[in-house]
Nucleic acid binder design. Structure first.
Ligand SMILES: [Zn+2]
Ligand SMILES: [Zn+2]
Ligand SMILES: [Zn+2]
Ligand SMILES: [Zn+2]
Lengths: 166, 166
DNA sequence: AGCCAAAAGGTTATAGTGTAACATATTGGT
DNA sequence: ACCAATATGTTACACTATAACCTTTTGGCT
């Protein structure tokens, strides 16, 4: 269903996963909300790669991991919780979900999405956020949230002659 | 299915519609592509308001206008054409479509979407576009397109005490 | 421990969005 | 008139998400 991305081969991704889980446990503890085993399992599956994954892909992964079949509401409820706590983000242009690398404070983030390797990188550029707010303010618009998703090619895939060999 | 937005009551919206149709005819003529009656009808329906409309809403509107029932591929193909020619845009966060007020050149645009009256206003701020490209370039990312959708309250709805009277 | 209310998860069915595949009709050039 | 290309009609289906209702688990209370 998904293939490990090139960008993931250049770092120890196990650290990404374990860091995310540790941070999530601490955050939920601090907030007095419950990171149940199902929710943690979904979070870990989301973090299996840096590629956004669809809810049904996650459902299949859950099913394979659990012998018993899982129905859509189960995974969507877990995703809703993780979204609510800022542990994951939703990529609107892909109908997919990705782990947040810095969930400790809720933030407005931006994504660079590679069309080749499918990896999505989260940015949180304060200057850019300010610029967005300024532009909205010029129109007298009060901002509650925004979604910025930039599609293109990551550095690795730009200079990659192997595209057609996959 | 949709209700006329407050923001639309302050201008002669007939001009918006006719301008869009005239511009579309001219553009398609120049480009040698065919603005068929179906495509023009869908464009006109999209322009019935400044609120983004879903494909199935448009399908129902087409059905009511045409006595005969319309199937999804019919409206999706028309929408695909209009998107391809830059005559409409898709709002990812709403799964909806809206007419482009300046289709003569293909552009990257931004949307201010009011959560109250549902009106979406298109901005095309060159400075902001530049800023986005710069931020991406800092990460060595080459941009092919982007989607920026800002949600909040438009000026009219911020100061509007009538919200609960609707 | 036993009880209870609240929260979480299971189950079934269905709503909403979008496309594949193939048949028919229309267009525009020869 | 003929033909190839484009556009539209039609059926069926895939993918994404939620409603409604029931059962289980959790954690505070007596
Ligand atoms: Zn990693
Ligand atoms: Zn984040
Ligand atoms: Zn108007
Ligand atoms: Zn536009």
């Amino acid at each position: 269903m998904y293939t490990p991305a090139k960008a993931c081969s250049h770092h120890n991704h196990g650290h990404c996963i374990s860091d995310a889980i540790v941070a999530a446990r601490q955050l939920c503890d601090e907030r007095g909300v419950r990171l149940t085993s199902l929710r943690e399992q979904v979070l870990e599956l989301v973090w299996q790669s840096h590629q956004p994954l669809g809810a049904y892909t996650l459902m299949d992964m859950l099913g394979k991991a659990s012998t018993r079949q899982i129905a859509p509401p189960t995974v969507y409820r877990a995703l809703d919780f993780l979204l609510e706590e800022g542990l994951i983000h939703r990529i609107n242009s892909l109908n997919a979900f990705i782990g947040c690398p810095s969930p400790s404070q809720k933030h407005q983030s931006h994504f660079l999405i590679c069309q080749d390797c499918k990896v999505a990188v989260e940015l949180d550029n304060a200057q850019l956020n300010q610029h967005l707010n300024d532009v909205a303010a010029e129109s007298g618009f009060s901002v509650t949230s925004h979604s910025l998703e930039i599609s293109g090619l990551c550095p690795a895939c730009q200079t990659d002659g192997n595209k057609d060999l996959l």
